[in-house]
Design a binder for these strands. Structure first.
Lengths: 119, 119
DNA sequence: TGACAATAGGAAGATATCGTCCTATTGTCC
DNA sequence: GGACAATAGGACGATATCTTCCTATTGTCA
């Protein structure tokens, strides 16, 4: 797939959506692994087995400035006996991009609906 | 498999063997994942895909006092960007047990050889 | 429109450790 | 010797993140 400059692909929108969702529920940050679950639910059971896909998307979003990340304190992960997590949070730019994507989706579906009616 | 009280099973002998081997090469400790490779080599390419088997054996050996373990400093794993390791080292008891197992193996193979010659 | 280039997606593996569940094997006791 | 109980073994999944390699799709430009 080649990227239409500046546009977000569906998976990326889902990720931003999930980040916003998580924050709305009172959590400032999410780690990738948990995000995977939320995204999986948002896209209703589309399995997303390949975590590589998600982590690559997270990287892209961070490079674009839509997400910011920080690594968990090593001691905490050690205390809880699990691998270290990397936490992501939605940035202001990310929020704006998400809103634009939503608006765009509305326009498109409206257009599609109109077209469907006309046909 | 039921354990003959006090006896070591082949995998456990291999583990102790590998630990001794590693130490001989100047390394005081090994972590499980690396040990898996050494053991895999000792038992020539017997794949040992199931790490669960190895970690369970490590646990048994530690409970029996043949191995001692310590966890890596969380910061080091973090700095190197990988999961935390658990290091094992052969104890004195472990060394003794290993020597006994070796002697036992010699006796058995000698017995087998003799039997084979007689037959 | 058709070719090409760019890149997203998916599979799979690396890095580490551990838990659960079921099966297979073996020692022991009668 | 055969039944039973104990437990080792293996498959698989959880926890987390990331890399590599190949394929599929899509935007763009001629």
């Amino acid at each position: 797939m080649r990227r239409k400059s500046g546009a977000l692909i569906p998976l990326e929108v889902s990720i931003l959506e999930a980040s916003a969702e998580v924050r709305r529920s009172g959590q400032a940050e999410v780690h990738g692994y948990e995000l995977a679950k939320v995204v999986r639910d948002l896209r209703h059971a589309r399995r997303l087995t390949a975590y590589g896909t998600l982590y690559k998307a997270l990287n892209r979003l961070e490079r674009q400035g839509y997400l910011a990340s920080r690594w968990e304190e090593p001691q905490i992960a050690a205390d809880e006996g699990r691998p270290r997590r990397r936490f992501y949070r939605l940035t202001l730019e990310g929020e704006i991009a998400l809103n634009e994507a939503r608006a765009e989706a509305r326009r498109t579906s409206a257009g599609r609906a109109a077209a469907a009616t006309v046909e």
